[in-house]
């Protein structure tokens, strides 16, 4: 909007200049500034086309029913809304999970969009744990898939999609077991039917209407 404002002021001043036939009303600096701004916006617009391309990667994961899933091969042909969570996180991660569900509901339960959640804590989030977790959100049903996998495979996948996590706190449970919590990237991705990254959202706080608007453009 700032840019629009600058452009508007520029044209109003330009018109006034013509009207009053003044030579000094617009200095060379402001003309230059506007030209630089225009080119910057055009350049930024070009970069928006594809933020990343997952077309040539391959990760073998498994869903909450124990079925093998390949990213991105199994999701080609339809847009994919992809969230990242761990199930020991009932606060922020619940918002990410619920955002996918809300998007699906608000779009009137579309069948031509994939909705997928991947854990970055595969050691604890087994398919069985993910199945319980999905059920708690009424999401243990198509089109939702909750993915985990071998530790190294999940770590490599998270690195490729730029989701970081690290142990933040170790807790003792009532039985004296150790339980860890994680600091992690808060993210939802929108990937198109050709496995190209279209959008990168702050996962938990993203209003679903923004995701829906972007989905409708695809």
């Amino acid at each position: 909007m700032d840019f629009l404002h600058v452009i508007t002021v520029f044209f109003i001043r330009a018109r006034l200049c013509v009207k009053h036939l003044k030579h000094n009303c617009m200095n060379k600096k402001s003309v230059l500034l506007v030209l630089v701004l225009i080119s910057l916006v055009i350049l930024a617009g070009c970069g928006e086309e594809a933020k990343d391309d997952y077309g040539d990667v391959s990760f073998n994961l498994v869903d909450q029913n124990g079925e093998e899933v390949n990213f991105p091969d199994d999701f080609r042909g339809k847009p994919l809304v992809l969230g990242f969570i761990y199930t020991h996180c009932p606060d922020i991660c619940s918002l990410i999970t619920a955002n996918l569900y809300k998007t699906w509901i608000e779009l009137d339960k579309p069948e031509d969009i994939h909705f997928v959640i991947v854990t970055f804590d595969p050691e604890r989030d087994t398919p069985e744990v993910l199945k319980d977790y999905a059920a708690d959100f009424s999401m243990d049903q198509p089109p939702f898939r909750f993915l985990t996998g071998p530790k190294e495979e999940v770590a490599a996948f998270m690195e490729r999609v730029r989701v970081r996590n690290q142990v933040s706190d170790i807790h003792k449970t009532a039985e004296g077991e150790e339980m860890y919590f994680l600091d992690h990237t808060d993210k939802i991705l929108l990937i198109d039917h050709n496995s190209r990254l279209v959008m990168d959202y702050g996962g938990s706080m993203t209003p679903t209407n923004i995701i829906i608007e972007d989905l409708e453009k695809l």
């Binding site: 922020i92 933040s168 992690h184 990237t185």
Partner: peptide, 21 residues
């Protein structure tokens, strides 16, 4: 629950989030 605690979620730089007791 085995443990019931007061928690707080927090946000760090670079879009990292977490929680603590």
């Amino acid at each position: 629950a085995q443990l019931t605690e007061i928690h707080e979620s927090y946000e760090q730089e670079e879009g990292m989030v977490g929680m603590r007791e």
